[in-house]
């Protein structure tokens, strides 16, 4: 019986903790497998799984690869700015679409698996709740009712209702925790045995991808800059991005004149083009001109008034 109660650190009782649960699911994979050659289809899956793992960790911890889905988690203490999660999955989706296009271009194999890779898409489920970490088959995994609900949310009515293939679905409780109110969303209600009705909010990533592809880039080229600086950091782009752009975190590393950056406004409910930050010490307004997590940002600093 003891083993049943053993948790992380070998304690008799695992300590419940709160955090974010993320599922990245390759949609269309069942049909893809059914209609393609067995020899190459697993290679395609393996390539995508490895790509997703690289994109989503170490910001999130990988709990398990569940067939054609990845299950990841992060303690709430490790995600100080909830919006980072949205940026993480959005960036992952955009990079996936670019990768999918490159894969399709580079493939010379005429087999059905290789030729129909563009039918695969990605959906993300993000939930917030309580869980305990337990080691199963050599790997730490979150367990609990919240984990069950996150998995249940994979079966939802978003595609049926909206026609979207690539999207992120947040449980309402998760989006509230992230303190986000994005625009252009689909509000849904899912119903599951034992959980009842669950309010959800989904964002169409296909549309986001089109926006990113079509938008004119506002970007200072090296030859147009007055000063070019380069620095290599140990941490990966999502972590550096957060330190550069979270106003609270930025105040901790600026060595120059004492800054006190705060969020001024988020016209579309989140950070992005046309959002503003304000330095209450210098009186500068930072206006975001272009925003492509975790690739680049362009901002304009202007004296208030």
């Amino acid at each position: 019986m003891e083993a049943l109660h053993q948790g992380v650190d070998g304690n008799m009782e695992a300590q419940p903790q709160k955090g974010y649960l993320l599922l990245a699911d390759i949609s269309g994979y069942t049909a893809f497998m059914a209609n393609t050659e067995l020899a190459h289809a697993p290679l395609v899956l393996n390539q995508i799984i490895r790509f997703l793992t690289k994109e989503l960790t170490p910001t999130m911890q990988l709990a398990e690869v569940e067939g054609d889905a990845l299950f990841l988690y992060a303690s709430e203490n490790d995600i100080s700015r909830g919006e980072l999660l949205l940026e993480l999955v959005e960036s992952c989706y955009i990079n996936f679409r670019d990768k999918r296009r490159t894969m399709a271009h580079n493939i010379t194999c005429p087999c059905n698996a290789c030729q129909t890779v563009t039918t695969l898409d990605l959906k993300f489920i993000v939930h917030y709740g309580e869980y305990v970490l337990q080691k199963m088959t050599g790997k730490l995994k979150p367990f609990g009712s919240s984990v069950n609900l996150a998995h249940r949310l994979l079966k939802n009515s978003v595609k049926e209702t909206t026609g979207w293939n690539g999207y992120v679905l947040f449980s309402n409780i998760c989006l509230n925790k992230m303190e986000l109110s994005p625009e252009n969303i689909y509000k849904g209600m899912e119903k599951y045995d034992h959980f009842g009705e669950v309010e959800t909010i989904s964002i169409n990533f296909e549309e986001k991808y089109q926006e990113y592809s079509a938008n004119r880039k506002d970007f200072i080229k090296p030859e147009d800059a007055d000063v070019n600086l380069e620095y290599t950091f140990t941490a990966p782009p999502p972590i550096i991005w957060d330190w550069l752009n979270d106003p609270t975190k930025r105040n901790k590393w600026y060595a120059g004149n004492k800054s006190n950056w705060v969020v001024k406004d988020r016209p579309h409910g989140r950070t992005g083009s046309s959002a503003n930050n304000h330095c209450t010490n210098s009186g500068f307004i930072e206006h975001i001109l272009d925003w492509r997590p975790f690739h680049y940002f362009t901002v304009r600093h202007k004296k208030d008034g």
Partner: peptide
């Protein structure tokens, strides 16, 4: 006007910062 460009590099990040 400031652009920050982040490139993944060996598990880390190479930042190009322009003003």
């Amino acid at each position: 006007k400031i652009t920050g460009e982040l490139d993944p590099l060996n598990g880390g990040t190479h930042l190009k910062w322009r003003i």
